[in-house]
Write a protein that binds this DNA or RNA. Sequence first.
DNA 1: CCAAAAGTGTTACACGTACACCCATGA
DNA 2: TCATGGGTGTACGTGTAACACTTTTGG
Lengths: 240, 240
Amino acid sequence: MYKEFVENAEQEQDSYKGKDKMYVAIDCIIFGFDAGSLKLLIFKRRVEPLKGEWSLIGSFVNLDEDVSAAAGRVLEEITGLKDVFMEELKTYGAADRDPGYRVISIGQYALIRLNEYDRKLVEAHGAVWHDVDKLPSLVLDHDQMVQDALEKLKAKARFQPIGFELLPEKFTIPQLQSLYEAIYQKELDSRNFRKKVMSYNVLIKLDEKDKSSSKRGAFLYKFDHARYKKLLQSGYNFEI
Amino acid sequence: MYKEFVENAEQEQDSYKGKDKMYVAIDCIIFGFDAGSLKLLIFKRRVEPLKGEWSLIGSFVNLDEDVSAAAGRVLEEITGLKDVFMEELKTYGAADRDPGYRVISIGQYALIRLNEYDRKLVEAHGAVWHDVDKLPSLVLDHDQMVQDALEKLKAKARFQPIGFELLPEKFTIPQLQSLYEAIYQKELDSRNFRKKVMSYNVLIKLDEKDKSSSKRGAFLYKFDHARYKKLLQSGYNFEI
DNA sequence: CCAAAAGTGTTACACGTACACCCATGA
DNA sequence: TCATGGGTGTACGTGTAACACTTTTGG
């Protein structure tokens, strides 16, 4: 029945007549983690409008493209990475948010591993990693987007093991702790932290050590995704 | 600098040239609560396309209208209520979600008090309240929207006192418990529930009783918004 | 041998959970 | 008087938070 109707209509349906079309964009809030602090990938605009201003990286959504696909496309264009943790943040839909023409933007935040992305690509786009606690101000409502993304990250990391998306595949417990300290902006007790993390049984201890930050070295671990999925089924809940 | 640029451009900026415009809609997932069960406001479409099918209530967003304002407008048109709890759920942005033309929709969920809305308005729109656990299937991706909204409600009600938005201003503890049981789909122990709720000190006990569901009657309470705000400042967290 | 980070246990307290009985009242 | 829902207290176990010392090893 719907099909018939659509076929009768030419290109756009009658019921859409008189309705307004607008641009739909996505903006990426891309987080990384290194040396004890959270980083954000931003770039300095090289063309008008707003040339020279700091901005998130975004794009318009094409007519035949899923909104999430647009976000994935931009992320890959700039970092070379596919299959990265990426999720919708929220819609920025104020009528006057873009002074040029009506554009709504869907913020998408991503967590990537700083040891995996394509440095040349990033450089080629004029993008740079910036500490989140020393950010310059960004164009339009991008500051708000970053603020919102940080809050979401803080809230979400507590109950879902998304923090691991920011660490290399192999990481040490002190690294993990330092990450959570950066996200929560709060120091944690190392004994309690280790005890709690270990209690979830989702870390695989490796035989290697990372000696980059101490003489003694710290054991490396991997996150056990399979096990985590299984545990989820049997209704357990992760909380750090 | 941005301004200059905009003024040079005519109506639409050069940098937007060749980009696609599309329709932006909002769909409202409107919850109510009564007689121990969660209700959803849906309506049967009276015009093509999809005439006769069950659907959420939505609207296109106008060019000069904030996305959230569009949601507020629709909610008021159909229920007569302003200043209701309403929040973005997420964006539904699949390229083929609407077979007519490209339309992205931003799901917005609202919680309203069933004793306050305008019954005549709702009727006039052909909308009806339906138990969420016996819903007919809805058009397009609206089933998914409802599913997502239910999950969000479940997750959010636990840490933020949004449940109260679904009850009359004055409510009894058994009513409150019954609401949480409907949200969590799980029976709760009345002694523990009462103890916990009371421990937050955000309920004001009134001198009235509600005798509608027992001979003895249950004391009525009001939620103390001011107190809740104050407590939030001093970093406490609500959890039920 | 020493500086610097990794790793380990115990105790006190708060909180969650399980559980059963009396109270008030209208019919 | 009795059926029905409202309201209360306790005991136990689990989890959280506070806290300090030993181990390892490269320089």
